[in-house]
Amino acid sequence: MNMNRSKIKILVAKPGLDGHDRGARVLCRFFRDSGYEVIYTGLHKTAEEVANAALQEDVDVLGMSFLSGAHESYVPKILNLLKNNGVDLNEIVILVGGTIPEEHFKRLIDLGVDGVFIPGVPLNEISDFIDLKIKEKRDKSEAQHYFVGTKLIQKNPV
């Protein structure tokens, strides 16, 4: 039993109108079986609903799944709502997953997203990244890792 993970709370969100949540549900199941606490929002959530759930549940990880291109408008909106409600984005791990075009990766990372996952990434790489990122944020470490598409990259701000 992984007691450290059981104290990590993940919100898996489906913002927007796309109705495909097989991927999100597979992830929920995987996260649960890996020892995390998972909350799933269900389909068709507005930016306000997702931000409010993340706020009230005080989650450690916010994962958003998009298969329709809606990440372009939803991700900045949700992150802004969180900030406006006093959430420190340096305290939570922000993940985006789904069909995200390669040319959007950088923009999402610049917005404050820690990891962007496209189809084909092995599930355990996602959980390894979550554990790594939680530790980095907790220790406020200098070295920062990001997950971009299918690769883990390191970026040192200095």
Binding site: R5, E37, V38, I39, Y40
Partner: peptide
């Protein structure tokens, strides 16, 4: 077994 939970 895993300590994990799906809070649904």
């Amino acid at each position: 077994f895993t300590g994990g939970a799906l809070l649904g």
